[in-house]
C-alpha cells in the first residue's frame, strides 16, 4: 500500500495510466500524484492546456491526454518529481521514457544505465538517448531513456555508474 511503503499499487496506477489506444498515438505524460496536497506547478507550467487549471490548489492533477503532446515541461516543473513521459511509438522494440533526474553525475547520451522500478529494484538496462538540463528546468534534468517496450510502465528511475562517489 502506497501510504505504508511509498510504492504505488496496481490499483493506484490504474487511475493515472492512459489507455493503450492513447499510448499508441505517441508521447504522453503520466502523473503519478496520488494524494491531495497544496501544489499546482504542473498545471501552471503546461502550455498545451492539457493539465487543467486547479479549482482548489489541493486538487490532484487532471490531464487531457488528447491535448498532451509529451513535451515534458511538467516533468521538470513538478516539485515532487512525480511526472513521467512515456512514448510507445519510439521504435518497434523500445519505448522512450522521459524521467526527472537530480543526481550527479548526469548520464551521457549513449550510456547504458541500470533501469530501476518504483521500488528501486533493477529490472533491466536502459540506453540514454538525450539529457535535457537547461537553466529553466532549475536543475531538474530530464533523461530520455530507451527501454524494452515491456518495461515502459515499470521503469521509473535509473542508476548511473559512479553516482555514489565511492562511498558505498
Amino acid at each position: 500500500m502506497l501510504k505504508s511503503t511509498g510504492i504505488p499499487t496496481v490499483a493506484d496506477l490504474a487511475e493515472v495510466l492512459p489507455t493503450e489506444e492513447r499510448l499508441a498515438k505517441g508521447p504522453v505524460a503520466i502523473i503519478e500524484c496520488f494524494q491531495r496536497i497544496p501544489c499546482n506547478p504542473c498545471a501552471t507550467a503546461c502550455r498545451q492546456d492539457a493539465i487543467r487549471p486547479f479549482a482548489d490548489i489541493n486538487d490532484r492533477p487532471q490531464i487531457d491526454w488528447d491535448q498532451c503532446n509529451g513535451c515534458a515541461l511538467c516533468v521538470a516543473n513538478c516539485p515532487g518529481l512525480a511526472i513521467f513521459v512515456v512514448d510507445m511509438t519510439y521504435s518497434e522494440t523500445e519505448a522512450l521514457l522521459k524521467l526527472p533526474y537530480e543526481l550527479l553525475p548526469l548520464p551521457q547520451p549513449g550510456e547504458v544505465v541500470t533501469a530501476l522500478n518504483r521500488a528501486g529494484e533493477p529490472v533491466g538496462k536502459g540506453r540514454v538517448i538525450r539529457v535535457q538540463n537547461p537553466p529553466t528546468f532549475e536543475r531538474t534534468a530530464i533523461v530520455h531513456l530507451a527501454v524494452p517496450r515491456e518495461l515502459a510502465q515499470e521503469v521509473r528511475n535509473i542508476m548511473v555508474e559512479g553516482e555514489t562517489d565511492g562511498t558505498r
Binding site: L2, K3, S4, T5, G6, Q35, G80, A82, G120, N157
Partner: peptide
C-alpha cells in the same frame, strides 16, 4: 502505521532503493 510526509517524496526515495 503510515507515511506522514507527502507520498510523492516517499515514492521518490523508494524508487531510489530506500526501504521505508
Amino acid at each position: 502505521p503510515t507515511i506522514g510526509g507527502y507520498l510523492v517524496h516517499a515514492a521518490k526515495v523508494r524508487r531510489a532503493g530506500v526501504p521505508i
